[in-house]
Amino acid sequence: MQECIDYAASSQDEVCGLIIDGVTLFKCRNAHEEPDSNFRITDEDWLAAEGQGEVTAIFHSHPINSPVLSGTDRVYQLASGLPWWLACNGDLYKFNPVPHLLGRKFEHGVTDCYTLFKDAYHLSGINLPEFERVDGWWLRDENLYIKNMEANGFYQVIANEAAPGDVIIRKPFLGADPCHAMILLDNNMVLHHDCSGHLSRREPYRLAFIKQTHSIWRHRECSSLNLAGIYADISVKSH
Protein backbone atom coordinates (compact mmCIF):
# COMPACT_ATOMS: atom_id res chain seq x y z
CA MET A 1 0.00 0.00 0.00
CA GLN A 2 1.68 3.16 -1.24
CA GLU A 3 -0.05 5.33 1.36
CA CYS A 4 1.83 3.49 4.14
CA ILE A 5 5.17 4.02 2.39
CA ASP A 6 4.43 7.71 1.80
CA TYR A 7 3.35 8.18 5.40
CA ALA A 8 6.61 6.60 6.61
CA ALA A 9 8.63 8.93 4.38
CA SER A 10 6.92 11.99 5.89
CA SER A 11 8.74 11.74 9.24
CA GLN A 12 12.16 10.97 10.68
CA ASP A 13 10.40 9.34 13.63
CA GLU A 14 8.48 6.09 13.56
CA VAL A 15 4.96 6.62 12.28
CA CYS A 16 2.12 4.28 13.14
CA GLY A 17 -1.42 3.41 12.24
CA LEU A 18 -4.05 0.73 12.04
CA ILE A 19 -5.21 -1.14 8.96
CA ILE A 20 -8.97 -1.24 8.64
CA ASP A 21 -10.63 -4.18 6.85
CA GLY A 22 -7.31 -5.12 5.28
CA VAL A 23 -7.22 -2.14 2.91
CA THR A 24 -7.50 1.24 4.64
CA LEU A 25 -4.78 3.00 6.64
CA PHE A 26 -6.03 4.82 9.73
CA LYS A 27 -3.17 7.13 10.69
CA CYS A 28 -2.42 7.38 14.40
CA ARG A 29 -0.31 9.70 16.52
CA ASN A 30 2.89 8.13 17.84
CA ALA A 31 2.52 8.74 21.58
CA HIS A 32 5.77 7.04 22.62
CA GLU A 33 8.30 9.03 24.66
CA GLU A 34 11.05 7.98 22.22
CA PRO A 35 9.32 8.18 18.83
CA ASP A 36 12.57 7.97 16.89
CA SER A 37 12.91 4.29 17.83
CA ASN A 38 9.53 3.19 19.23
CA PHE A 39 5.82 3.74 18.78
CA ARG A 40 2.66 3.65 20.84
CA ILE A 41 -0.91 3.94 19.65
CA THR A 42 -3.30 5.57 22.11
CA ASP A 43 -6.55 3.98 23.24
CA GLU A 44 -8.38 6.95 21.77
CA ASP A 45 -6.93 6.34 18.31
CA TRP A 46 -7.65 2.61 18.55
CA LEU A 47 -11.30 3.23 19.49
CA ALA A 48 -11.65 5.76 16.69
CA ALA A 49 -10.25 3.26 14.21
CA GLU A 50 -12.64 0.56 15.40
CA GLY A 51 -15.47 2.96 14.71
CA GLN A 52 -14.57 2.78 11.02
CA GLY A 53 -14.32 -1.00 10.66
CA GLU A 54 -12.39 -4.04 11.79
CA VAL A 55 -8.74 -3.54 12.76
CA THR A 56 -6.95 -6.27 10.80
CA ALA A 57 -3.29 -5.20 11.13
CA ILE A 58 -0.99 -2.77 12.92
CA PHE A 59 1.31 -0.54 10.88
CA HIS A 60 4.51 1.27 11.81
CA SER A 61 7.76 2.35 10.22
CA HIS A 62 11.48 1.98 10.88
CA PRO A 63 13.34 5.18 9.91
CA ILE A 64 16.63 3.30 10.19
CA ASN A 65 17.66 0.52 7.83
CA SER A 66 15.96 -2.35 9.67
CA PRO A 67 13.27 -4.00 7.53
CA VAL A 68 12.41 -6.67 10.13
CA LEU A 69 10.52 -6.63 13.40
CA SER A 70 12.60 -5.90 16.49
CA GLY A 71 12.44 -8.04 19.60
CA THR A 72 10.17 -5.48 21.22
CA ASP A 73 7.98 -5.44 18.12
CA ARG A 74 7.63 -9.21 18.33
CA VAL A 75 6.55 -9.10 21.98
CA TYR A 76 3.82 -6.59 21.25
CA GLN A 77 2.84 -8.24 17.99
CA LEU A 78 2.12 -11.52 19.75
CA ALA A 79 0.23 -9.64 22.46
CA SER A 80 -1.93 -8.06 19.74
CA GLY A 81 -2.45 -11.31 17.84
CA LEU A 82 -2.48 -9.35 14.58
CA PRO A 83 -0.31 -9.12 11.48
CA TRP A 84 2.09 -6.19 11.58
CA TRP A 85 2.95 -4.13 8.52
CA LEU A 86 6.34 -2.42 8.46
CA ALA A 87 7.49 0.35 6.14
CA CYS A 88 11.24 0.72 5.71
CA ASN A 89 13.47 2.03 2.93
CA GLY A 90 10.53 2.66 0.62
CA ASP A 91 9.15 -0.88 0.88
CA LEU A 92 6.29 -2.43 2.82
CA TYR A 93 6.70 -5.74 4.66
CA LYS A 94 3.93 -7.81 6.21
CA PHE A 95 4.59 -10.14 9.15
CA ASN A 96 2.16 -12.66 10.58
CA PRO A 97 2.05 -13.22 14.37
CA VAL A 98 3.89 -16.54 14.30
CA PRO A 99 4.89 -17.94 17.72
CA HIS A 100 8.34 -17.17 19.12
CA LEU A 101 10.92 -19.40 17.48
CA LEU A 102 12.36 -20.74 20.73
CA GLY A 103 10.41 -22.78 23.26
CA ARG A 104 7.79 -24.36 20.99
CA LYS A 105 6.29 -27.76 21.81
CA PHE A 106 6.53 -30.28 18.99
CA GLU A 107 3.31 -31.25 17.21
CA HIS A 108 3.73 -32.78 13.78
CA GLY A 109 2.12 -30.71 11.06
CA VAL A 110 1.38 -27.86 13.48
CA THR A 111 4.60 -26.84 15.21
CA ASP A 112 7.31 -29.08 13.81
CA CYS A 113 10.68 -28.61 12.14
CA TYR A 114 9.18 -27.35 8.87
CA THR A 115 6.90 -24.91 10.70
CA LEU A 116 9.92 -23.49 12.53
CA PHE A 117 11.93 -23.27 9.31
CA LYS A 118 9.03 -21.59 7.47
CA ASP A 119 8.29 -19.13 10.29
CA ALA A 120 11.96 -18.20 10.73
CA TYR A 121 12.21 -17.45 7.02
CA HIS A 122 8.98 -15.44 7.20
CA LEU A 123 10.42 -13.23 9.95
CA SER A 124 13.52 -12.81 7.77
CA GLY A 125 11.63 -11.66 4.68
CA ILE A 126 11.08 -14.81 2.60
CA ASN A 127 7.68 -16.50 2.52
CA LEU A 128 7.41 -20.24 1.98
CA PRO A 129 4.23 -22.24 1.39
CA GLU A 130 2.58 -24.63 3.78
CA PHE A 131 2.19 -28.18 2.53
CA GLU A 132 0.23 -31.16 3.76
CA ARG A 133 2.20 -33.82 5.59
CA VAL A 134 0.96 -36.89 7.38
CA ASP A 135 2.92 -38.25 10.33
CA GLY A 136 5.37 -40.95 9.28
CA TRP A 137 5.88 -39.63 5.73
CA TRP A 138 9.63 -40.26 6.08
CA LEU A 139 8.95 -44.01 6.33
CA ARG A 140 6.84 -44.17 3.15
CA ASP A 141 9.39 -42.91 0.60
CA GLU A 142 7.47 -39.63 0.23
CA ASN A 143 10.73 -37.69 0.62
CA LEU A 144 8.89 -34.42 1.21
CA TYR A 145 11.86 -32.24 2.05
CA ILE A 146 14.01 -33.13 -0.93
CA LYS A 147 11.05 -32.94 -3.32
CA ASN A 148 10.00 -29.53 -2.05
CA MET A 149 13.30 -27.70 -1.55
CA GLU A 150 14.14 -27.09 -5.21
CA ALA A 151 10.49 -26.52 -6.08
CA ASN A 152 10.39 -23.64 -3.57
CA GLY A 153 13.49 -21.76 -4.63
CA PHE A 154 16.35 -23.64 -2.97
CA TYR A 155 19.50 -25.05 -4.50
CA GLN A 156 22.06 -27.35 -2.96
CA VAL A 157 25.45 -26.13 -1.70
CA ILE A 158 28.45 -28.11 -0.54
CA ALA A 159 29.22 -28.34 3.17
CA ASN A 160 32.37 -26.19 3.19
CA GLU A 161 30.45 -23.35 1.51
CA ALA A 162 27.56 -23.34 4.01
CA ALA A 163 26.63 -19.91 5.38
CA PRO A 164 24.23 -18.56 8.01
CA GLY A 165 20.67 -18.81 6.72
CA ASP A 166 21.26 -22.04 4.83
CA VAL A 167 18.97 -24.97 5.62
CA ILE A 168 20.52 -28.23 6.74
CA ILE A 169 18.49 -31.37 6.01
CA ARG A 170 19.29 -34.25 8.34
CA LYS A 171 18.63 -37.97 8.10
CA PRO A 172 18.33 -38.92 11.78
CA PHE A 173 16.82 -42.39 11.22
CA LEU A 174 18.43 -45.31 9.40
CA GLY A 175 16.31 -46.60 6.54
CA ALA A 176 14.17 -43.45 6.44
CA ASP A 177 14.00 -40.37 4.23
CA PRO A 178 15.87 -37.19 5.24
CA CYS A 179 13.22 -35.63 7.46
CA HIS A 180 14.62 -32.93 9.71
CA ALA A 181 15.47 -29.32 8.88
CA MET A 182 17.77 -26.97 10.76
CA ILE A 183 18.72 -23.37 9.97
CA LEU A 184 22.40 -22.59 10.21
CA LEU A 185 23.12 -19.48 12.29
CA ASP A 186 26.28 -17.56 13.11
CA ASN A 187 29.02 -19.17 15.22
CA ASN A 188 28.17 -22.66 13.97
CA MET A 189 24.84 -22.69 15.80
CA VAL A 190 21.61 -24.16 14.44
CA LEU A 191 17.95 -23.39 15.06
CA HIS A 192 15.72 -26.45 14.97
CA HIS A 193 12.82 -28.42 16.44
CA ASP A 194 12.76 -32.20 16.53
CA CYS A 195 10.43 -34.85 17.94
CA SER A 196 12.78 -35.87 20.77
CA GLY A 197 10.63 -34.21 23.41
CA HIS A 198 12.75 -31.05 23.53
CA LEU A 199 11.32 -27.62 22.83
CA SER A 200 12.47 -25.75 19.73
CA ARG A 201 15.96 -24.49 20.45
CA ARG A 202 19.29 -23.13 19.33
CA GLU A 203 22.38 -25.26 19.86
CA PRO A 204 25.79 -26.02 18.29
CA TYR A 205 25.98 -27.84 14.97
CA ARG A 206 27.65 -30.73 16.73
CA LEU A 207 29.38 -33.82 15.37
CA ALA A 208 26.30 -36.04 15.61
CA PHE A 209 24.33 -33.56 13.50
CA ILE A 210 27.16 -33.30 10.99
CA LYS A 211 27.26 -37.08 10.58
CA GLN A 212 23.50 -37.15 9.97
CA THR A 213 23.54 -34.29 7.46
CA HIS A 214 22.06 -35.30 4.14
CA SER A 215 22.31 -32.00 2.24
CA ILE A 216 22.53 -28.22 2.66
CA TRP A 217 20.29 -25.81 0.77
CA ARG A 218 20.29 -22.08 0.01
CA HIS A 219 17.39 -19.99 -1.20
CA ARG A 220 17.76 -18.27 -4.58
CA GLU A 221 16.77 -15.01 -2.90
CA CYS A 222 19.24 -15.45 -0.05
CA SER A 223 20.45 -11.87 -0.54
CA SER A 224 17.06 -10.69 0.77
CA LEU A 225 17.11 -13.07 3.75
CA ASN A 226 17.58 -10.79 6.76
CA LEU A 227 18.68 -12.94 9.69
CA ALA A 228 18.25 -9.97 12.03
CA GLY A 229 14.58 -10.97 12.13
CA ILE A 230 15.52 -14.36 13.59
CA TYR A 231 18.07 -12.97 16.03
CA ALA A 232 15.66 -10.28 17.27
CA ASP A 233 13.03 -12.89 18.03
CA ILE A 234 15.55 -15.21 19.70
CA SER A 235 16.82 -12.37 21.88
CA VAL A 236 13.39 -12.00 23.48
CA LYS A 237 13.29 -15.63 24.58
CA SER A 238 16.96 -15.79 25.60
CA HIS A 239 16.77 -13.24 28.41
Rank of each mutant, 00 (worst) to 15 (best):
C4G: 00
C4L: 15
Y7K: 01
V15F: 01
G17N: 07
L18M: 09
A31S: 13
H32S: 14
H32N: 12
P35Q: 02
R40F: 09
W46G: 00
G53V: 07
T56D: 06
I58R: 02
F59Q: 03
F59L: 08
S61T: 03
I64N: 13
S66K: 10
S70E: 03
S70D: 03
R74W: 03
S80A: 15
S80F: 08
S80M: 10
G81K: 05
P83H: 08
A87L: 04
A87N: 01
G90S: 06
D91Q: 15
K94A: 11
P97L: 04
P97D: 02
V98S: 13
V98K: 11
L101E: 01
L102Q: 09
G103L: 08
T111A: 15
C113K: 02
T115R: 14
Y121M: 09
N127G: 10
L128D: 03
E130A: 12
E130S: 12
G136L: 08
N143E: 09
N143C: 11
M149Q: 05
I158W: 14
N160F: 12
E161D: 14
A163V: 15
A163I: 15
I168D: 00
F173P: 02
I183M: 14
L191M: 08
H192G: 06
S200H: 09
Y205G: 07
R206S: 14
I210A: 14
I210V: 15
T213M: 10
H214M: 10
S215G: 10
S215K: 05
W217A: 00
R218A: 04
H219C: 07
E221S: 13
A228M: 11
V236A: 04
